[in-house]
Design a protein around this nucleic acid. Sequence first.
DNA 1: GAAGACCTGCTA
DNA 2: TAGCAGGTCTTC
Length: 271
Amino acid sequence: MPELPEVETIARQLRARGVEGQKIQSLKINWARIVEPLSVSAFSKQVCGTTISEISREGKWLMFSLGSGKTIMIHLRMAGSLSMVPGPHDRIILNLSDGLTLYYRDTRKFGRWKLVDDPQEILGKLGPDALTRRFTRKYFSEAMLSRHRPVKPLILDQSIVAGLGNIYADEALWESKIHPERRSDSLVDAELEKLFKAIKHVLRVGVENQGTSLGEGKTNYRDLEGESGRNRAEVKAYGRSGKPCDRCKTPLKKIVVAQRGTTFCPLCQTI
DNA sequence: GAAGACCTGCTA
DNA sequence: TAGCAGGTCTTC
């Protein structure tokens, strides 16, 4: 569920709540497979008593740098979230020094908390974060033109560009009028320019709107304060199959591309 | 590539 | 009740 804008929102809210600088007094882990690569007891032992010195984000990874020099790297996968109040499906509970408690909630138990010596162990395998200057137009064009694959799975590939998931990928393709199955090396320069800008744009707007929440169910994205993101109002393609395209009124179509549901406009997104 | 695995909940 | 879900990894 959470993509770059949702993770960024949570990181900002954790900082605003003053979590940086706090000590982890104790923690409870209710689902062993979430922590890696250690056992529950080893993870707890290494984390307990350390201070969260800095909170950052790269792609869809949320990072707590610890005073010990190690880093907790959190991936929310499909349904993970962080909250300041208890709720159902809390898998990890952190008690912090000034009385705050942080709840890691994850109905589907897909999320992961990894304790690493060096974040580069994980970040080194990622492409540039889509909202940083390291993600350049030149890099993007070369990445697309050097491959002969449908464009959608390429922009979802975190080793090429980090941060896009299924929602923002469909949105970026809709905005740039490119068919999701279009071969990446067939894109002309003007299209690469449009797609590059669209990727940055949809993610920036997503961050401004504090993420996309699709409904009211328990598997839906909520921010640290339990609020829905407001970005659903900006969504033009994802989840709108059968509804009229915002540009041309043609009903949007849903297909499967590289095993992912994909919604697009069959008229204005050209193959 | 594609399919299965990891999980639970919602919707048709 | 079957099928699908905002993600990624492993295994054919």
